[in-house]
Design a protein around this nucleic acid. Structure first.
Length: 826
RNA sequence: GGGGACGUGGCGGAAUUGGCAGACGCUUUGGACUUAAAAUCCAAUGGCUUUUAUGCCGUGCGGGUUCGAGUCCCGCCGUCCCCACCA
């Protein structure tokens, strides 16, 4: 075909480019991960989404970061696994069902289809053959099986527990779902209720979860600290106070304290409203009963609690101080938590601010037993002195510091049989029961009063289908609940609670790593695990990441996986903001990715996401920033195509500008070194992209000035190919296409990452900064490696330097090779 | 109340081990091309100053260490995040 007379360069059409690249990858199943023991593996995982309906910008950012890392690691020659699936159980499906008359199954399936097509449009290098949704019985079957094994070992158990109960919705509410004492959906007054619930014994693993944080060097310090605080390990003493006038069988109250040094200042014992010692007293004491009732109605763990006044009622009980023999009153107080320690505390008003406020409100005595070590005045009338100091008014313990008093009092309590050392955790056992339909059924059955786990042959216990807006909890579906009669003629009923959805997300990364159809974690999982790089939101810093670590240790102890930790490296990406605030429906400041993908293509959206901010920082959405990214891609497309076309003409110059060529080569190889470091070590994708932009600008200038000779063209080809490879993880479609235009048969995804050649990186001349008293006065261009003497000589000869140095005494000269020289003058 | 992070032009951000502050991009202004516009390309873009200069000032504020500080130390101010009656 004849060349057009005035051949216009082909335009950059992102949709066409992206369609072709994706078809190419799909046809060759490029991203299917196949176990290969001969190759180093790399398992890169992004937190799988809840299928809410549409992809939002937070997803796009999360998954682009994961994809960039995956594609980069693949170019390093690793065998990469990057899977994707759906965290499909959860409340929104039930809400949507009630509101829209569509069954949770159908709603979820439709959302998955929609979001999957959006993910595919973005060109992520996922192994879709490993996809699953957690609501599929083939998925939750294994977690039900594992739960039965945990039960056998006593790691899963059932007990009565206090919950926030919504009497209208007939369900348990999480603390966050209680707003001003009312249910977030029903608006009904929330009650404290004690009901049987299933728990996992995560507290057995508290020490390991804490200690193994030390293995996680590649986790953000912030996340490790949050987990440490959440586990909240504290060492103290459990002290037994005998009761003088004990009702029923209760003879003593146990309190936990981390400050036994203040024991001689205890003037009262305070117990929580839920404390069992009160049970025998309520009938006879209407005032106490009323107070306890009031406390139980007001839910805990709201910020308002702090502002609440310290209140209490004297129970009439009297306790004996184990060391002094003093008789102390026992009060029921609204600030004592049943969930922590033993639900009872010793009250030391002089040295605990809460106790101080409480004592002040009720005129209880304040007894000072600690004075500040530096003898600063501490006024008990103004507030408690809560620091550590020296004991006083404490008999034989007077003069001791915290450490000495701790040990002495511990020894005395032990000798008297009234106390022992004890470690307490803020972390509580994980309650996994939810009175919800849309979750994985807990595989327990009850024969009369006896509980047993479903046998392996009875698994999975499948969630029964429900149609339309009729979404009942399992307890209200007799066909599910009633499981017939057993051999002894007892009625068998199923457990009707479902698992907390954190249960599914605690092990999904193991399922992704298993061979298709594997019953339990297998050899293939052993090959891929642990996850090498995990990417997700900071909002999961505690719960999900703690539960997943716990689950992995459980699986390890059952011989199902190897190693202590599931995620070797963690990256927590920042939020996507619009107008300085987090994008949210309620604020009405959301930006739908679909429109931008439609307008500019997936590569532009990916590029902007990675360029606008470092991955861990918040990212401010900016339409003109997106435009800027798109401009760069258009310019680069044209640059490469123009270069390709130029190659078909004879070079305009016969001789190369050697210095310009050498400098261009140096820039190319320095850029390779920088970008490689940015991807691998620093995870600083924004600066990696900036370096590529800089290089492309330099290549454009070089092409115009010195590039049109044989050597220059070789350098330009090398430069463009380098950028194509280094930008491939970020904008894979465009780079795939340009790589073909540059005449390559091997697809770009199978290319090796470029390697910086040291020989080209060293410049033969350096610009040396000349300072006088630390101020920049001049610059000199000198051969690299010039010694101090030579640099000094040239610097002194410099007219501007001379002006500032002349007539002054040079006290000192600082020389940093190839960088600067500083004359210190007086 | 406790713990943590951050604070750099008009904006997003860069400066990696204490060594040229403001890379890269956006914005804005001027110019080229065009009948015109868009697109594209070129140039300028921290502040001050009738010394327009490789001049002075400048990384939230005040001190300090150093030949040299955005970077390290001390004390404030501000913003954001996490936990929150945890005994």
């Amino acid at each position: 075909m004849a060349e057009p007379e005035n051949p216009e360069l082909e335009r950059y059409e992102p949709h066409e480019v992206e369609r072709r690249a994706q078809a190419f990858w799909d046809e060759r199943r490029c991203f299917r991960a196949v176990r290969d023991d001969a190759r180093e593996k790399f398992y890169c995982l992004s937190m799988f989404p809840y299928p809410s309906g549409r992809l939002h910008m937070g997803h796009v950012r999360n998954y682009t970061i994961g994809d960039v890392i995956s594609r980069y690691q693949r170019m390093l020659g690793k065998n990469v696994l990057q899977p994707m699936g759906w965290d499909a159980f959860g409340l929104p499906a039930e809400n949507a069902a009630r509101a829209g008359g569509i069954a949770p199954q159908e709603w979820t399936a439709a959302n998955i289809a929609q979001m999957k097509s959006q993910l595919r449009r973005l060109g992520y290098a996922y192994d879709w053959e490993r996809e699953f949704a957690t609501n599929e019985p083939r998925y939750y079957r294994w977690e039900q099986w594992f739960f039965t094994r945990l039960f056998e070992k006593g790691l899963a158990y059932r007990r009565e527990s206090w919950v926030n109960w919504d009497p209208v919705d007939q369900t348990v509410l999480a603390n966050e779902q209680v707003i001003d004492g009312l249910g977030w959906r029903s608006g009904a007054r929330v009650e404290r209720k004690k009901i049987p619930q299933w728990f996992l014994r995560i507290t057995d693993y508290a020490d390991q979860l804490l200690d193994d944080l030390g293995q996680l060097d590649d986790w953000p310090e912030r996340v490790r600290r949050m987990q440490r605080n959440w586990i909240g390990r504290s060492r103290g003493i459990e002290i037994r106070f005998d009761l003088q006038n004990a009702p029923g069988g209760t003879e003593a109250l146990t309190v936990f304290t981390t400050r036994p040094d203040t024991l001689m200042g205890a003037t009262c014992i305070a117990v929580a409203a839920e404390h069992p010692v009160l049970e025998g007293l309520l009938d006879a004491d209407p005032a106490l009963a009323a107070f306890v009732g009031e406390c139980r109605r007001s839910p805990t763990a709201e910020a308002e609690i702090m502002a609440r006044r310290k209140q209490g009622v004297d129970t009439g009980l009297r306790a004996v101080h184990p060391l002094s023999g003093d008789v102390l009153p026992v009060w029921c107080a609204n600030f004592v938590l049943m969930e922590y320690g033993s639900g009872a505390v010793m009250s030391v008003p002089a040295h605990d601010q809460r106790d101080w406020e409480f004592a002040r409100a009720y005129g209880l005595p304040v007894r000072r037993v600690i004075r500040p070590a530096d003898d600063a005045a501490a006024d008990s009338a103004q507030g408690a002195f809560t620091g550590k100091g020296v004991l006083c008014n404490s008999g034989r313990y007077d003069g001791m510091d915290f450490e000495a008093a701790f040990e002495a009092i511990l020894a005395d309590l032990k000798a008297a049989g009234h106390g022992d050392e004890r470690v307490h955790y803020r972390l509580k056992d994980w309650g996994v029961s939810r009175q919800r339909y849309w979750g994985a059924p807990i595989p327990a059955l009850y024969h009369g009063g006896d509980c047993r786990m479903a046998g392996d042959g009875e698994l999975p216990v499948e969630l029964p289908a429900q149609s339309g807006s009729e979404v009942l909890p399992l307890a209200q579906i007799p066909a599910f609940r009633r499981a017939g009669l057993d051999a002894e003629g007892r009625e068998v009923v199923r457990e009707t609670d479902t698992f907390d959805t954190f249960f599914e997300s605690s092990w999904y990364y193991v399922r992704f790593a298993c061979a298709a159809g594997a019953a339990v974690p297998d050899d293939e999982a052993a090959y891929w695990l642990p996850v090498d790089h995990y990417v997700g939101g900071i909002e999961h810093a505690v719960l999900h990441l703690l539960y997943a670590r716990f689950f992995y240790k459980l699986m390890r102890d059952f011989g199902l996986v190897r190693g202590d930790e599931p995620f070797m490296r963690l990256l927590t990406q920042g939020m996507v903001l619009k107008d300085g605030a987090k994008m949210s429906k309620s604020r009405g400041n959301t930006v739908d990715p679909a429109g931008y993908i439609e307008r500019y293509g997936a590569d532009t959206v990916r590029l902007f996401m990675m360029f606008a901010a470092p991955p861990e920082q918040a990212l401010e959405w900016s339409d003109s920033g997106v435009e800027g990214g798109h401009r760069f891609l258009k310019r680069f497309w044209r640059q490469v195509l123009e270069h390709c076309r130029a190659l078909s003409r004879p070079p305009a110059r016969a001789r190369a500008d050697e210095e310009a060529c050498r400098e261009m080569r140096r820039r190319i190889h320095s850029a390779i070194a920088k970008v490689s470091d940015d991807y691998a070590r620093r995870r600083s994708f924004n600066t990696a992209i900036a370096a590529n932009m800089e290089l492309s600008n330099a290549l454009a200038r070089f092409a115009a000035r010195a590039g049109d000779c044989a050597e220059g063209r070789r350098i330009l080809t090398e430069g463009y190919e380098t950028i194509v490879k280094m930008m491939a993880p970020v904008t894979p479609h465009l780079m795939h296409c340009l790589w073909q235009r540059l005449g390559h048969e091997t697809p770009l995804v199978d290319c090796a990452w470029p390697v910086a050649d040291e020989r080209w990186m060293s410049a033969d001349h350096c610009e040396i900064v000349i300072q006088v008293n630390g101020k920049l006065r001049s610059r000199l261009r000198l051969p690299a490696g010039s010694g101090q003497a030579a640099v000094e000589e040239h610097a002194r000869a410099d007219e501007k330097v001379h002006r500032f140095v002349h007539g002054r005494e040079i006290v000192k000269i600082i020389h940093v090779e190839n960088k600067l020289v500083n004359f210190v003058v007086r």
